[in-house]
């Protein structure tokens, strides 16, 4: 199938159990409490492209990343990888090795007791991708060079490296199994800006050279704009607006997307001083009814308080907003 997306989410939902420990529940007669981290999320990620999910903390974007690589199992909906249900795909090493992940924290993502060579070599050994020790060595050497490190770096431990270098090691490990899909969870959020630029450039070069597909998670809209073909804006577990990056950044339609874009400080800002935004993200354990954004929304009506909005197509963009559907969401 030519047009089969590498990764597809169909109405995926996932909730965390945030209830107290068993004894406390029994003694305190508390019920189970759940947090709907991901709610009815759908997207398709075609080969060689980048889809970014952006939103504030607690919006569920990192949970989507973990669902995508099988660290969590969805409670509802379906995830397909290369056209097969995710657990079927993950049961086959030949498919499983085609997905890997890059994490945010450059310190916690590398085992401090392992040499870099072993860290990068682990996927190669696991999937039997090198015939013998010298072939393994050559592959690791090539990966080190590919991410801009030197071969000698392989014999050192992670603590000897700076944050940016560690993130390069992470990327080398992620590439070791020759994946098609890279799930990147805030890969540059812990880095300084000059180092962030190095890593973002490296990731784009690798995508171009290797035809990689990225699911890119970030809270930084400018980084997302720089990296993405498509963007999904998440709020309280839902994608509230999704479409081509150019369309979303040129004409944001959902009031939350507009709020986010207004809030971003841009040092070389061409926009006038940003509007102060009102309110904060509500408690996700007890989200507002109707449209979850209605308490902060300047366009909210009674309908927004009662009824969860469905997606409206505006050109290539999908928006979950009553105001947009009713034609009230025109840009002022």
């Amino acid at each position: 199938m030519v047009d089969e997306p590498v990764l597809r989410f169909d109405a995926v939902s996932f909730q965390f159990d945030v209830s107290g420990p068993w004894l406390q529940r029994v003694v305190g007669r508390e019920g189970r409490r759940t947090l709907r981290a991901v709610d009815d999320v759908s997207f398709a990620l075609p080969e060689g492209t980048t889809l970014s999910l952006v939103g504030e903390s607690g919006c569920g974007k990192s949970t989507v990343a973990r669902l995508a690589v099988g660290l969590y199992r969805p409670d509802g909906g379906a995830i397909h990888f290369e056209g097969q249900p995710l657990d079927v795909a993950r049961a086959q090493p030949a498919l499983r090795r085609q997905m890997s992940m890059i994490f945010q924290d450059p310190i916690a993502s590398l085992n401090p007791r392992w040499r870099v060579r072993s860290i990068i070599g682990e996927p190669i050994r696991l999937f039997g991708l090198a015939a013998d020790a010298s072939a393994l060595r050559r592959r690791v050497d090539r990966l080190l060079e590919q991410v801009g490190l030197s071969i000698g770096d392989g014999d050192r431990f992670p603590h000897a490296f700076s944050g940016g270098q560690r993130q390069r090691i992470s990327i080398a490990r992620a590439l070791a199994s020759e994946p098609r899909l890279l799930v990147c969870d805030e890969p540059t959020s812990a880095l300084d800006v000059s180092v962030q630029a190095q890593i973002l450039n490296l990731m784009r070069d690798l995508q171009r050279d290797l035809g990689l597909t990225y699911l890119f998670i970030s809270h930084n809209l400018a980084v997302v704009r720089h990296m993405s073909d498509r963007v999904g804006v998440m709020y309280l577990g839902r994608i509230v607006e999704q479409g081509p990056a150019s369309a979303i950044f040129a004409t944001p339609r959902h009031p939350y997307t507009r709020l986010l874009l207004d809030a971003v400080p841009d040092p070389r800002g061409l926009r006038p001083s940003r509007d102060p935004v009102v309110g904060e993200v509500p408690d996700p354990v007890d989200p507002p009814g109707g449209c979850p954004f209605h308490p902060r929304c300047p366009l909210a009506t009674d309908r927004c308080r009662m009824e969860k909005p469905a997606y409206t197509a505006v050109g290539a963009v999908q928006v979950a907003c009553h105001a947009v559907a009713e034609g009230r969401g025109a840009i002022a």
Binding site: S162, D192, A197, Q198, A222, R225, H226, P267
Partner: peptide, 22 residues
């Protein structure tokens, strides 16, 4: 430092990077 910050208003194809680290 200024050039390495991605911009919302003026997207570029490739960020200017400072090689190396502090």
């Amino acid at each position: 430092l200024m050039a390495s910050i991605p911009s919302l208003d003026r997207p570029v194809d490739r960020l200017r990077q400072i090689d190396g680290a502090m």
